[in-house]
């Protein structure tokens, strides 16, 4: 069964002469429980695909289906219970005046949970932060701790599909290892499906089962990680990318 189906997706910004086509005719499937990577350089449109799925990039055409249900222009509240996203920069993705408790509490409230206190405690434990971080403000947290809070927020509605937009590119390598391990554990515990965007082939190679290589808004190749590890890319651009990152 496919968790996410994308068919002939076009995303553009602006119109007429100023129109920029960020994604052109992208198609791929992500199976339930799978971890799928989107790889490419800056401006290749990989993050734009995530933003189109979540509705943050409103001008798109083609077909996006989550759990077999096609998405229309506006997304029902139910959609956000299924699909959540973790942003790239943990320094920008937390409200500077909201404590960890407020961030998680509000998210849970919006999704209609009643036992908010117990759930906040559980979420913090799940992401390895623990109780003493509950009432802190973002400026009292390190980059890695902030990203854990952002992951806890994404997990709050108990989603099935998690979109990860370069979740570790703003972090130090030792912190990156912690976050990647956490994401791998969470995927196993909660049976999550991941769609992960990254410019770092080794991170995608570590986290994902399959990946798509993007260039100038188009998907040039879809391959599995075994082929990536064996350096068996077929498209010249993916070969070039592979060579540059070893």
């Amino acid at each position: 069964m496919s968790m996410l189906e994308i068919e002939g997706l076009n995303v553009w910004f602006g119109r007429d002469r100023d129109r920029v086509d960020a994604v052109k005719q992208a198609s791929f499937n992500v199976g339930a429980g799978e971890s799928f990577g989107l790889v490419g350089e800056s401006g290749s449109g990989k993050s734009t695909i995530l933003r189109a799925i979540t509705g943050l990039a409103p001008t798109w055409s083609g077909r996006i289906a989550v759990g077999g249900m096609a998405i229309g222009r506006s997304r029902p509240k139910q959609f956000y219970k299924k699909v959540q996203m973790v942003f790239q920069d943990p320094y920008a993705s937390l409200h500077p005046r909201h404590s960890v408790d407020a961030v998680l509490g509000e998210t849970l409230h919006l999704h209609g949970f009643n036992d908010i206190d117990a759930r906040v405690v559980k979420l913090l434990d799940d992401v390895g932060l623990g109780q003493k971080f509950r009432f802190r403000y973002p400026h009292q947290l390190s980059g890695g701790q902030r990203q854990r809070v952002a992951i806890a927020r994404a997990l709050a509605p108990e989603p099935e599909l998690l979109l990860l937009d370069e979740p570790t590119s703003a972090l130090d390598v030792s912190v990156q290892a912690e976050i990647l391990n956490l994401l791998a554990d969470l995927r196993q515990e909660h049976g999550l499906t991941y769609l992960m965007v990254s410019h770092d082939l080794s991170v995608v190679g570590h986290m994902c089962d399959r990946l798509a290589v993007m260039k100038d808004g188009e998907i040039v190749e879809i391959m599995d990680v075994a082929a990536l590890r064996a350096m068996q890319a077929t498209h010249p651009y993916s070969q070039h990318l592979l060579q540059a990152s070893v």
Binding site: T54, G55, L56, K77, Y80, V83, Q84, M85, F87, Q88, D89, A92, S93, L94, H95, P96, H98, E106, T107, L110, H111, A150, R153, A156, P157
Partner: peptide, 22 residues
């Protein structure tokens, strides 16, 4: 246009809540 506003939108928050609380 900041990420934390995008993030709360993804929780299904409406315009009124975003303006007053965020």
């Amino acid at each position: 246009s900041s990420d934390y506003i995008s993030a709360i939108k993804l929780q299904g928050a409406g315009g009124l809540r975003i303006i007053t609380k965020h």
